[in-house]
Amino acid sequence: MNKRVILALATAGLLSAPAFASGDKTAALAATCNNCHGTNGVSVGPSMPSIGGLPEAYLRTVMMQWKSGERYSATMSRLIKGYSDQQIADLAKYFAAKPWVPQPQPVDAKILAQGKAASERCTTCHGDTGSQPDDPAETPQIHGQWAKYMELEMMKYRDNAVAMPHRRMRGNTQRLKEEDVAAVAQYYAAQQK
């Protein structure tokens, strides 16, 4: 597609309508994700992760791992089987291009300090505030992600009854003290950048 044509269409305010209707299939496909993950992948439901603005490679890795069974999910593993590898790649690209919107989640100072102290082992990969992931294929940013969701994810990593792919995440989450899990989640959730 000619860039000037796109620009002209956008200026004329005409691009958006046919984009949803015909030009961009991925937008229509992605709209089915919004039901649970929020419009544009910005979740407002604490047990559901925001996915808009996560690294493309990470999104693709996770979806492909659900599809192959390498990564456990209570719901997504059934859903993702309905999508082709190409659709998964398209969705990863689509949501990665959306802005990351940290959700404001204030937390009291005591829990914040407890979470920060316990999160030492997390910083190598996720960074001090969770916004500096080391490897985009493996590691998401987690600052401002929902605390409840992160707590539930850690619960999965800590439970050997389910298959989770990342040995370091397994080890590090299992070495966390039970009472620190929620605090670590809340510490990263409270970080806005």
């Binding site: 919004n34 039901n35 407002v44 047990s47």
Partner: peptide
């Protein structure tokens, strides 16, 4: 847990 997250998101969506 997902039921509640689903609910909040679909209401907002």
């Amino acid at each position: 847990e997902y039921q509640v997250g689903w609910f909040k998101n679909i209401m907002a969506d």
